[in-house]
């Protein structure tokens, strides 16, 4: 058999196998609509900011479930209100009521994004990643800061933000220092901005 014929035979076998198998993921679980997911990620529909979550929790929204992906010690140290601890490996065994918005968080974004994809595959298309993880919650809900050079619209929004923070036992302050309390780690905005810049640079064909 010449080399090209060997290639043709391999192509026939592999493509027919692909037809039979259908899904490119192991176990073939779920029918992930990659385009829809990618579009959601692009437009931010896969994420929820900490303040959005805080408002839903404050308003006693019943169809929100909060999932903490971290270790038991980290969870015991500090966790978000109403959070359940479910590590990534156990996530496929979990179940949530129909129509629930499942918000997952971890220390950063990576584990949360994996969990988000897993939940999408399990059919929970209202799953959300908590933008910025624990650090984001700590920074924007527990210790929001109104900077000295705030714009008029920022000043207008401040009272509601401060009240939201106090509701959860937080400590809103004014000042020029946007320092991070509780040693929460990297600024969530720079991590997200870096990831978006990275994705744009990769789109090369152009």
């Amino acid at each position: 058999m010449t080399a090209p014929r060997l290639l043709v035979a391999a192509a026939v076998v592999l493509s027919f196998g692909a037809l039979l198998v259908g899904s490119p993921v192991p176990g073939g679980e779920g029918h992930l609509d990659v385009a829809r997911l990618a579009l959601m990620v692009e437009t931010g529909g896969d994420a929820m900011t900490p303040r959005e979550l805080a408002r839903q929790l404050r308003d006693r929204s019943t169809d929100v479930a909060v999932v903490d992906l971290r270790s038991q010690e980290a969870f015991d140290d500090f966790h978000l209100p109403r959070a359940r601890r479910i590590p990534l490996e156990k996530l496929s065994g979990a179940s949530f009521p129909d129509g629930t918005t499942v918000v997952v968080y971890a220390a950063g974004d990576e584990a949360a994004e994996r969990a988000w994809r897993a939940l999408q595959g399990m059919g929970y298309d209202r799953a959300r990643v908590l933008r910025g993880g624990v650090g984001g919650w700590l920074q924007s809900v527990m210790a929001p800061v109104l900077p000295e050079d705030a714009t008029p619209s920022e000043r207008e929004a401040w009272p509601e933000i401060a009240e939201l923070s106090r509701y959860f036992g937080g400590n809103p302050t004014r000042g020029s220092v946007t320092g991070l309390p509780f040693g929460a780690g990297d600024s969530p905005d720079s991590a997200v901005a870096a990831a978006i810049k990275d994705a744009r640079r990769k789109g090369c064909g152009w």
Binding site: A18, L19, G22, S23, V34, A35, L39
Partner: peptide
């Protein structure tokens, strides 16, 4: 703009069918 639209997503066919 249509996002990362792929042929499987657009046609509704499984990925393996489009590959075939």
């Amino acid at each position: 703009f249509a996002g990362a639209l792929t042929l499987p997503a657009w046609t509704g066919l499984p990925v393996g069918a489009v590959v075939f």
